[in-house]
Amino acid sequence: MPLITVIPGDGIGPEVTEQALALLDGLGLDLSFDVLDHVNAGTFLATGCALSDDDLARIRRSDGALLGAIGDARVAGTRYARDVLLRLRFELDLYANYRPAQLLHDRLSPLRDPDRRAIDCVIVRENTEGLYTDIGGALRPGSTAEVAIDTEVSTHLGVSRVIDFALASATRAVCMVDKSNAVPNGGRLWQQCWLDATAARPDLATSHLYVDVAAMRLLSDPTAFDVIVTNNSYGDILSDLAAELAGGLGTSASVNLNPQTGFGLYEPVHGSAPDIAGTDTANPIGAILSAALLLERVGHPAEAAAVRTAVRMAVAEVRCTADLGGRLGTKAAGEAIRAALH
């Protein structure tokens, strides 16, 4: 029986996670859950540690983890989020961030041309290197002479394995995105790994775009893309853009994955949204679609497909939260999806 760790987290995290768990429970599958509801900002403020070694050991023993959100305005700086999110990514080596973007309903697209609205692509983002490794520092901080340095890190191992994963994930085409015309050293490594990997996949259409051109192309015709693979920071930005083209961050799901071990950290992309926490207005779709990704990975692809169909039905019937044009609260929107599922 697969064991799933659940980390509801902060802000709206517990609210949307509750709806995802209710849906998973209703499917009657052979899943068990280990809920770590103490991994949150309250614990960090009280003890200085949000994710203990024991917590990490429990997560390691599971087959995957479902995360609500991490972030609290009471906590200054980035240490808390890094101690939870980056510790999980680095210690579990969750090097591939997989973010699908599929338009749930035509009315949700911000694009004028109906022939180019139907985005259905995946952003594969390298998840453990790049600019987010916290390598750098500051000289004379707080003064008018301050010098701040953040170092972008790319390794042959990190780049080649995420490109390999992207190629394995594609059905028709992969586009590699970089800025090698302006970032020559990392760009050279990405280009070489890309050429080496694509030589072994003549069955796929492969292409390369600079990141600024890729952003423009996503806006002008998102239907042109199947899978995009890129580094940590570019993937962060492009995947948020793709999410907006698919209906907004409230609908966006993701998994931080180690394809070799099969372990994944599944989470909605929207963050903790403390301004609406406790108001029953958060959109649960991102969490529910993250649960669908989890189902797929633990051996229940038919149920995952059924969940996605139920989400689309509820959205089409405008049985959803206000950000998608509906009038339902978080709980009622979750109930509407479960009703469509059954």
Rank of each mutant, 00 (worst) to 15 (best):
S160L: 08
S160G: 10
S160P: 03
R161S: 01
R161H: 01
V162P: 00
I163C: 01
I163F: 03
D164C: 02
D164T: 12
F165D: 00
L167G: 05
L167M: 12
L167W: 06
L167H: 07
A168M: 01
S169W: 00
A170N: 04
A170D: 01
T171Q: 14
M176I: 08
M176H: 06
M176Y: 00
M176A: 14
M176V: 13
V177W: 05
V177S: 08
V177F: 09
D178Q: 09
K179F: 07
S180E: 13
S180Y: 02
S180F: 03
S180W: 03
N181V: 07
N181D: 15
A182R: 12
V183N: 10
V183G: 02
V183T: 14
V183L: 15
N185Q: 10
G186I: 09
G187M: 12
G187V: 11
L189D: 11
L189N: 10
L189H: 10
W190G: 03
W190Y: 08
Q191W: 12
Q192V: 04
C193K: 04
C193A: 14
W194F: 15
W194L: 02
L195C: 10
D196G: 03
A197N: 08
T198A: 09
T198C: 14
A199T: 13
A199Y: 05
A199E: 13
R201M: 07
D203Y: 10
L204D: 10
L204P: 09
A205C: 04
T206N: 11
T206W: 06
S207D: 13
H208E: 10
L209V: 02
L209D: 01
L209N: 02
Y210T: 11
Y210K: 03
Y210I: 11
Y210Q: 14
Y210S: 07
V211Y: 03
V211R: 04
V211N: 11
V213T: 14
A214V: 02
A215E: 05
A215C: 12
A215V: 05
A215P: 05
M216A: 14
M216L: 13
M216S: 11
R217D: 04
L218F: 07
L219Y: 11
L219H: 11
D221H: 04
P222G: 03
P222A: 07
T223Y: 06
T223M: 06
A224W: 01
A224I: 00
F225L: 05
F225S: 04
F225C: 04
F225Y: 12
V227I: 14
I228D: 00
I228Q: 01
I228F: 01
V229P: 00
V229S: 00
T230G: 04
T230Y: 07
T230K: 04
T230D: 05
N231T: 14
N231C: 12
Y234I: 13
Y234R: 03
Y234E: 03
G235E: 08
G235P: 09
D236H: 09
D236A: 12
D236Y: 09
I237K: 05
